[in-house]
């Protein structure tokens, strides 16, 4: 299954946020979207997942999602969005409960995703007891449990400190190695994009247009062994982005 954005434009009132954006997320592919603050990345992701209707253009699905996918387009949020009144297990089971899955099958799914995200021993813990990194792993486990065709991740690691972020990036790479999920991954951290993205789409400042698309051929699990190449790509992206970011920053302060 492929998720496609076809010439999408969108405005809030008279603020134009997205301008003529087309892109696609193929099966098993991680597409990273980077861009300066306020350029419409989150808006783009909401349109992709059907939480928002674009003014023009459309979000399209090509092909059928896998038959066992309970929620083909599944979000992972920056703030984790865990229910504080449910345990780790309960938070995962929340998204299965509406699907009339037999109890033991649901239990098996939960055990499986918790194992994949290294959370098995914390199944009964409350979210308040978890560190930020663990919370995001729960959110990822929850997303995996519905077997998504595409994961829509909005800065999933930006609320975490840099060590935790590095660890979780490794985990995501491992996970991709096992599951091969596809994702649209938003970040404004270029190191993250370079580490996780098969393709990196850079947006301009608001109104967001596609400024550059970079494909990285190095397999995800080998990138750590190619520091020179990845650093070069990261630097090139930064060169391109710096002016946009500076302009966006000034623009925001003008608005304020």
């Amino acid at each position: 299954m492929e998720l496609i954005l076809d010439r999408v434009s969108h405005s809030y009132g008279n603020v134009e946020v997205l301008n003529d954006i087309s892109l696609s997320v193929g099966s098993g592919e991680i597409v990273c979207i980077v861009g300066p603050s306020g350029c419409g990345k989150s808006t783009l992701l909401r349109i992709l997942g059907g939480l928002e209707k674009p003014d023009s253009g459309a979000a399209l699905i090509a092909g059928d999602p896998p038959a066992d996918s309970l929620n083909p387009l599944t979000y992972v949020f920056q703030d984790f969005a865990l229910l504080p009144w449910r345990t780790v297990e309960g938070n995962v089971s929340l998204v299965l409960e509406d699907h009339a899955i037999p109890k033991d099958r649901a239990r098996a799914i939960i055990a499986d995703v918790l194992a994949r995200t290294k959370l098995s021993e914390f199944a009964g813990a409350w979210p308040r007891q978890l560190s930020g990194g663990m919370k995001q792993r729960v959110a990822i486990a929850r997303a995996l449990s519905v077997n998504p065709a595409v994961m829509l991740m909005d800065e999933p690691l930006s609320a975490l400190d840099s060590q935790t972020r590095d660890l979780l990036m490794d985990d995501l790479v491992d996970l991709w190695g096992q599951v091969g999920f596809s994702a649209c991954y938003i970040t404004h951290n270029l190191a993250e994009a370079v580490r996780l993205g098969h393709r990196i789409v850079m947006l301009s400042r608001r109104p967001g247009r596609i400024r550059e698309i970079v494909d990285i051929d190095i397999p995800l699990n080998e990138r750590i062994n190619h520091p020179a190449e990845t650093t070069a790509i990261q630097r090139r992206l930064w060169e391109a982005m710096r002016d946009e970011a500076r302009a966006a920053d000034r623009e925001l302060s003008d608005v304020a």
């Binding site: 939480l51 969005a81 409960e97 509406d98």
Partner: peptide, 22 residues
């Protein structure tokens, strides 16, 4: 928290489930 409600919607939870569980 609106984000929790949006999370429920993004997972395709029914209206009743969102009210009851979130």
């Amino acid at each position: 928290d609106r984000n929790l409600i949006r999370m429920g919607q993004s997972f395709g939870l029914s209206w009743l489930s969102i009210v009851r569980k979130i």
